[in-house]
Simulated assay, not measured.
Amino acid sequence: MTRESGRYKGKRVIQGGRAQVRTVLYMAMMSAMQCNPVFKATFRHLVKAGKPKKVAIIACVRKMVVILNSMLRDGVMWDANTAKN
């Protein structure tokens, strides 16, 4: 949940939800950005585009969740070539 009111123009802060899940996903992405070329390239691209580092990390987490959900749906293993899309 984001905390917004009216025409709020400041930085948005995430609150609520499952803190343990957020922590696990964040730490998994920190490791993935070091070892996985797909997420490393995505992170670098976002930072180069001017995004703050924490915003870029969370964007990579979202990409990871989408990829993992599609892998489960289709019953396939990791393939770096299809993950680049």
Rank of each mutant, 00 (worst) to 15 (best):
E4G: 08
V47M: 02
M30G: 10
S70R: 14
A80C: 06
G50A: 03
G10P: 04
V13K: 14
P52Y: 00
A59T: 10
C60K: 00
A19F: 00
R12M: 10
I14Y: 11
R18H: 14
A80V: 13
A49Y: 02
K53V: 07
K53H: 15
K63I: 07
T2Q: 05
A41M: 08
M77V: 09
G16P: 03
M64K: 06
D79E: 10
T42Y: 09
A56N: 01
N85D: 12
Y26R: 15
Q15G: 09
G16N: 02
T82D: 11
K11Q: 12
G10Q: 14
Q20C: 05
Y8K: 13
L25M: 14
M27P: 01
V38F: 00
K40P: 00
N69I: 05
R73F: 06
D74Q: 13
M1S: 06
K63P: 06
V38S: 03
M64H: 08
R22N: 06
G6R: 00
V38P: 00
K63S: 10
R62G: 08
L68E: 12
I67K: 05
V24I: 06
R12H: 12
D74G: 00
F43E: 02
H45P: 01
R62A: 11
M1V: 07
Q15Y: 13
D79P: 02
Q20G: 05
S70V: 11
K9M: 11
Q20S: 09
D74F: 09
I14N: 04
L72T: 05
S70K: 13
R62K: 15
V13L: 13
M29P: 00
T2E: 04
Q20T: 09
Q20V: 11
R62S: 12
C35W: 05
V66M: 06
C60M: 02
V24L: 05
M77H: 08
V61P: 06
V24F: 08
V65P: 03
I14C: 12
V76T: 15
M29E: 01
S70A: 14
V38C: 07
V47A: 03
I14H: 05
M29D: 00
G6L: 03
D79H: 10
T42K: 05
I58C: 12
I57T: 05
Y26A: 07
G10Y: 09
M71D: 00
M64T: 05
V55D: 02
P52F: 00
K54D: 15
T42M: 05
K40G: 07
I58F: 10
K51D: 04
C35I: 08
G17F: 08
R7C: 12
M1G: 10
A59P: 03
K40T: 04
M29L: 04
G10M: 07
M27K: 10
A49L: 09
T42Q: 11
V21D: 07
A80P: 09
K54W: 01
V24Q: 06
W78Q: 07
I57F: 04
Y26M: 14
C60G: 03
A32K: 14
A28G: 08
K51I: 04
F43V: 01
R12T: 08
K11C: 06
V21P: 02
P37S: 15
T82R: 07
A41S: 15
